[in-house]
């Protein structure tokens, strides 16, 4: 056999595999479905309802991206991931986008080679304890048994917090939120610690939420955001600007109720560019004019998504706080659409 022909063929095959892996958008379009990594179930953020339909704050990001790219917010395959499996799932290409309460950190961005496309929830790590324990500060937790999800930033923060306060604890590593809830409610751990939003979401599902308090200490910064793999900037741009579109829509007052009306043209050029009646933003992304319109129409703008899933009038009951628009003193600030 001609060795060089054979080796040449191998090289070509290898190169083609590399090329095929680069175009996530083409893959998604060819597949007709977006593979989106979510939690294994955290009410308000991502959980299947009684009919098996996924709902929640993070799920809405997946749906918005699917609506922008594929024109159908239901063209999403939700892949439940644990704190530990999520990065492998993304790095291996099993999922195209990870929207799972994931904290943007330096090492995840730089060392693990991911690209965070923004922040959809500014959070911090908190502690939840049963009221009956009579604890009022996290500093009183010396010797406590703490339930902690493995493979999270919260696991590292926890170690740092107890070490810097010179107090001891007994970690109980847990895979999923559901297991943590079971152990915590049975008293197998005194404390459950994770992102404060996750604590609120978990507590909302308890039979007697009033029996549990979230301690005042917030021991870390947890900017939670969706992420994609390094190295495919086109796909990263699509995800990033879809999220920005949701945030900008709230700022400009574009809602799922008035979007059809506004899409006929307004005298605000920024809205017009966002909704595609002016300019060629969609084309630049490799999408059509109405990509953002579809993304917003899917589940509403950022504010609507927040209110419906985790807002003050939902069972989870989180205030906007840091997650208000910059115009209201919050941190949400979408860059200009131009």
């Amino acid at each position: 056999m001609n060795k060089s022909v054979f080796l040449g063929a191998l090289t070509v095959a290898g190169l083609m595999a590399g090329v095929a892996a680069a175009g996530t958008m083409d893959d998604v379009k060819a597949r007709g479905k977006l593979n989106c990594g979510v939690t294994t179930g955290l009410v308000g953020f991502a959980a299947p309802d009684a009919n098996g339909v996924w709902n929640g704050f993070d799920v809405s990001v997946c749906r918005a991206v699917a609506a922008a790219v594929l024109g159908d917010q239901n063209a999403v395959e939700f892949v439940p991931t644990t704190g530990k499996t999520r990065f492998t799932a993304l790095a291996s290409g099993e999922i195209d986008l990870l929207a799972r309460n994931t904290t943007w950190t330096f090492s995840r961005d730089v060392d693990l080679k991911f690209e965070f496309i923004g922040v959809n929830y500014y959070d911090g790590q908190g502690f939840m304890v049963p009221k009956s324990l009579g604890v009022s500060s996290a500093k009183e937790l010396d010797g406590a048994t703490v339930c902690i999800q493995t493979g999270t930033t919260t696991e590292l923060n926890l170690a740092d917090f107890f070490r810097s306060n010179n107090i001891s604890y007994e970690p109980v590593p847990i895979e999923t939120n559901a297991e943590a809830q079971q152990q915590y409610l049975a008293g197998a751990c005194d404390v459950y610690t994770t992102d404060a939003s996750g604590l609120a979401a978990t507590r909302a599902t308890f039979e007697a939420p009033g029996d549990h308090v979230i301690l005042p200490e917030i021991i870390s910064k947890e900017p939670l955001g969706p992420l994609v793999r390094h190295g495919d900037s086109e796909w990263g741009d699509i995800a990033r600007w879809t999220l920005n579109a949701l945030i900008a829509a709230e700022e400009y007052g574009v809602t799922s109720a008035n979007i059809e009306e506004l899409a006929k043209g307004t005298n605000n050029p920024e809205i017009n560019r966002l909704l595609g009646t002016e300019g060629t933003l969609g084309e630049m992304l490799g999408l059509d004019k109405e990509w953002a319109k579809r993304a917003i129409a899917a589940n509403g703008n950022y504010g609507e998504i927040f209110a419906k899933n985790i807002g003050e009038n939902s069972p989870v009951g989180l205030g906007r706080g840091l997650n208000a628009q910059w115009t209201n003193g919050g941190l949400l600030y979408a860059p200009p659409f131009r």
Partner: peptide
Amino acid sequence: GITMNQTG
């Protein structure tokens, strides 16, 4: 588990 996850 944790090492693999934290270091990627």
